[in-house]
Simulated assay, not measured.
Amino acid sequence: MIKKFLFALLFIFSFSALKAAPTESIQSATDTLSVIQHIEEWYKNNTNYYTVTALMACESSVLPVPSEMVIPPAVYIAMDPDSNLNIWLIIFFGTIGALIGASFNYLMAKWLGRLVIYKFADSKIGKSFLLSSEKIMKAETYFNDHGKTSTFVGRFIPVIRHLISIPAGLAKMNYLSFALYTVLGAGLWNCILALLGYLAHGQQDLINKYSHQLSYVFIAAGVILAGWLILKTVRRKKK
């Protein structure tokens, strides 16, 4: 997930560079659009509150759609004077989508039970969704160790983020408590992602000039974060 986060940042940098490029050069390269340009064009033509809600619902369910590729680009587009999108509504609908996807995982786990969930995770279909019994076990262990608040804190942890709803369902956690912690966690996470998209637009000239150097900064931050998570896991196992 950290790699996806870094890729999302690089995606935003590419967004800025394309915005700053002369119109003539972009037009002349229409027949050889890069993958990033295709993605930009798709976002421009299709990003709205419905797609943000749907994509974030997928992100919080078993579908591997990273939120880092949904909220920041949507906010970036909202900063365009010609856009009808509102940043606060992007955060709102993104959070609603996260609750919908998390509720799907919660209800699925609650109704199907642990045995079926673990078998599904190790099936071909489950693996195509990047699931595994090890990931489910990791999320369930985290939930058991941290209780109800794990549905809030778990929204900020890679891998755990979109799976924490499953152990909540397996434990038959009170749904209102589950929904409250999910909305709070997802809402705060979406605010962070929205800030990322806002800064990408607000500091466009700076990013265009120093995007290469900034990418190393974010990579270093990702390595530090990964190291901290590994150290925390090792210490917990020792205890």
Rank of each mutant, 00 (worst) to 15 (best):
M1R: 07
I2H: 03
K3S: 15
F5E: 13
L6T: 13
F7R: 11
A8K: 06
L10N: 15
F13N: 09
L18S: 11
P22T: 08
T23D: 11
E24F: 14
S25A: 12
Q27R: 12
A29C: 12
T30S: 14
L33P: 15
L33W: 12
I36A: 15
I36Q: 15
I39V: 14
E40P: 08
E41Q: 15
W42V: 01
W42T: 06
W42H: 10
Y43D: 01
N45R: 14
N45F: 03
N46D: 04
N46G: 00
T47Q: 10
T47K: 08
N48A: 04
V52S: 03
E59I: 00
S61G: 13
L63I: 15
P64T: 12
P66W: 01
P66N: 09
E68Y: 04
E68H: 04
V70G: 05
I71D: 06
P72E: 00
A74Y: 06
V75Q: 05
I77W: 10
A78K: 04
D80Y: 01
P81S: 03
D82R: 12
S83Y: 10
N84V: 04
N86I: 09
I91Y: 03
G94F: 04
G94P: 07
I96H: 06
I96D: 04
A98I: 02
A102T: 04
A102P: 05
A109V: 01
K110W: 03
W111L: 10
L112Q: 04
R114W: 00
I117W: 03
Y118W: 01
Y118E: 06
F120P: 03
F120L: 12
A121C: 04
S123G: 10
K124Q: 11
K124C: 09
I125W: 14
G126A: 13
G126M: 11
S128W: 15
F129G: 11
S133E: 11
E134V: 10
A139W: 10
Y142C: 03
F143G: 04
F143H: 06
H146M: 07
G147V: 00
T149W: 12
S150Q: 12
T151Y: 10
F152T: 13
V159P: 09
V159W: 07
I160C: 06
H162D: 12
H162V: 05
H162W: 07
S165C: 05
G169P: 08
A171V: 10
K172T: 01
M173R: 08
M173I: 07
Y175D: 01
S177P: 09
Y181Q: 02
L184G: 02
G185Q: 00
A186L: 01
L188F: 10
C191E: 11
L193M: 13
Y198Q: 08
L199H: 06
G202K: 09
Q204F: 14
N208V: 05
N208G: 14
N208D: 14
Y210C: 05
Y210E: 13
S215P: 01
Y216I: 06
V217K: 06
F218Q: 09
A220M: 07
G222S: 10
I224C: 10
L225W: 13
G227P: 08
W228S: 13
L229H: 04
K238A: 08
